[in-house]
Design a protein around this nucleic acid. Sequence first.
DNA 1: TGCGACTTAGTCGTGCACAACTCATTAGGG
DNA 2: CCCTAATGAGTTGTGCACGACTAAGTCGCA
Lengths: 151, 151
Amino acid sequence: MSTAGAEPPQEGSLLLDDQLCFALYAASRAVTARYRPLLDELGLTYPQYLVMLVLWEQDSISVRDLGNALQLESSTLSPLLKRLESNGLLRRERRAEDERSVALRLTDAGARLRERAGTVPLAIGDAMGLTPEQNAVAKQLLRLLTTNVTR
Amino acid sequence: MSTAGAEPPQEGSLLLDDQLCFALYAASRAVTARYRPLLDELGLTYPQYLVMLVLWEQDSISVRDLGNALQLESSTLSPLLKRLESNGLLRRERRAEDERSVALRLTDAGARLRERAGTVPLAIGDAMGLTPEQNAVAKQLLRLLTTNVTR
DNA sequence: TGCGACTTAGTCGTGCACAACTCATTAGGG
DNA sequence: CCCTAATGAGTTGTGCACGACTAAGTCGCA
């Protein structure tokens, strides 16, 4: 048996389980799946939740700045924002000072949703089951990875 | 300024940048984007590449076992496998011993593609720019996270 | 001051991802 | 043996994600 389990992972391996990329991809989907039942109660999908996080932090942001914050294209955001608008959580209005730009503003319902969302981060943090140190290391490594890879 | 930059991240915060989940989501998309030009040359998408990794490792696998390996539903895999089949990389054939099960077998073209894919993991590993130790820690934390969250 | 380059949102087409469901097949208990 | 439950693959509908493109608006400079 030339490929016994005790061998160290190879840098250039084609084995699925040696690949950080797969661990990353699987973890991302698993976390999103864990969010799903919680966000269903708020009537949000996971990307919609991320948009609301940004808006709760900084209301009246442009589509462009939102895209920069989330690293998403306008072709992803435009339909998503339309759905949030038709669900009554935000309004989109062209800026008077630059008609190219669209300002996103929370409605009252959108602002109120923040209260109900308050328990979500703790519930997810709990489900992740990492120590604060592990959490910090993971976040730091993922950010390093992201900046390296988008360089 | 009550929320200056020097404060530690809060466990239950609703700030986007405090959330491990967003770092994970952004990193996953960034890595996939980094793969894209390399995989374009092979005529594969990223999920298709993952399927090929599994098949190169273990030919004649069932859709069910492939789904277990990648943690994907048949509703995701069925159309994806159809595309790989119509691109001539694999064949799908019902198993004689259990007509419910479909065996996936590489074609010659599918097997040959492995040679051309050989450089991909090293190129990505290089782009990720993590030390072997950081890579190992990241992989370990992501797996822990995945098992915790899917528990 | 006019016009070409750039910016900003948006549309369209393709391909995941997943819930809910269907349909064929198999297994297992009476 | 039957017949009911379970299993395996697939279909359908919704919502991302992104490349390629479009259209409207702004800017800068000849």
